[in-house]
Amino acid sequence: MTVRVQTEDFDVGAELAAMRLASKDIGALVNFVGQVRDMNDGDVVSTLTLEHYPCMTERSLESIEVEAKSRWNIVDSLIIHRVGKLQPLDQIVLVAVTSAHRGEAFKACEFIMDYLKTRAPFWKKEATADGERWVEAKISDDDAQGRWANAIDKPVSDK
């Protein structure tokens, strides 16, 4: 399990290849890449600046990985999250999970992203034509995390 918080960009292809080739018992690799959009709440966004809480950020991401590994039979997980000043089309985050079969990797990857969104101490500030503003947290992100609260291996809303 790996966590990296960095200002530099990352090479998704290289990261995924390294994870995929790490072990012959891996049959599935699922990943999510988040990137900066040029629109938010109806306004054009020119830059996005990510602040974080050093030490707590890494610890919270590591504990999310530990939680995912305790819930699903996964081989490995990787979280890379960028901080600092970013532009539209820049990559922000990569989450990747390997497992023997796809189901576990899909669920663990979504779980890690949902928890990261509501528990890891990152804050986005966006620059628009009207100046800079802090991005407000979304209720839908809390709902997405809440789905996993009572679930052993699936969102509660999955009927």
Partner: peptide, 10 residues
């Protein structure tokens, strides 16, 4: 002790 608004990463 740290105080901060609800987080908005990802």
């Amino acid at each position: 002790v740290a105080f901060f608004p609800p987080v908005t990463g990802g």
